[in-house]
Design a protein around this nucleic acid. Structure first.
Lengths: 140, 140
DNA sequence: CTGCTTGCAAAGGCTTTGCAGAACA
DNA sequence: TGTTCTGCAAAGCCTTTGCAAGCAG
């Protein structure tokens, strides 16, 4: 994605476009992918240092609040982000720490009618943990 | 739950029953609840010190591997555990960091037919994030 | 100019680990 | 007795923060 378009996207979300944010957003929006803060940092600075670790964390937080990326809680060890904010679900492979999208037509949920009092649904997340098919689980 | 029964449960799961493990398991199995390592530590030592933080973490890891408790990944800040290993899903309220069970008959999922090659499903987790009902979400 | 943004390094919170002493079988 | 378990403190890892310098408008 070219700088001009990224800048436009940022302004549309009410985000002041700085050099770092433009570069970071360009890296994120370049493709559909799942990434950790660490991975984003590395990718952002691949061709010369653009942003620090602190800026990556601050920017991810900002982007998530503005709906540019979606935070995923699937790995107990770190937070992942999704460059796609469309509502979809995930496979998670703990062996490789990889996330795969589940296409919306592949899954279907009937949500509960009753919610705790005074609450409404903010988000629904379905995570299917994978394991190698030949692996047998020892009986408990 | 009395000591004798807890001890029996531990042996059934192939866990050597030590003083600490018996007390920890008794606290966990006393009721149906969701807890963090910190909460379990506090509850375990409520009436006199029984176990250290290291032992709590080691024991939780062991219990989870043996299927006595279930690890929940719902909060980016810490891992929660569930004293019930029956398959069910959760509401999570980020404001209070509280988890509520969703009764199995309240939710219904049609799982994907296609899985990544060589993989099978290890676990399915549905987490419904809540927010206060009157709260309006600012348009992005 | 004036306020927001960035970066460094240090701090913070949760979790794991090394190692010596204690408990289990 | 030999192995496993426990506890303390220190270390580790991911993430946040304080503060001074830099950039956007």
């Amino acid at each position: 994605m070219e700088t001009a378009e990224v800048t436009k996207r940022l302004r549309e979300q009410g985000i002041t476009p700085t050099n770092q944010r433009i570069r970071i957003a360009a890296v994120i929006l370049e493709k559909t992918w799942h990434f950790s803060a660490e991975q984003l940092l590395e990718e952002t600075n691949r061709e010369g240092k653009v942003a620090s670790k602190a800026t990556i964390y601050n920017t991810l937080d900002l982007f998530a609040r503005r709906g540019l990326v979606k935070q995923l809680v699937v790995d107990p060890d770190r937070v992942y982000y999704d460059s796609s904010t469309h509502h979809h679900h995930h496979f998670f492979d703990p062996d490789t720490q990889q996330l795969f999208d589940i296409q919306p037509d592949q899954i279907d949920i009937k949500l509960p009618a009753a919610l705790p009092a005074g609450k409404e649904i903010a988000d629904v997340s379905v995570v299917i943990q994978l394991r190698s098919a030949q692996q047998t689980v020892k009986a408990a």
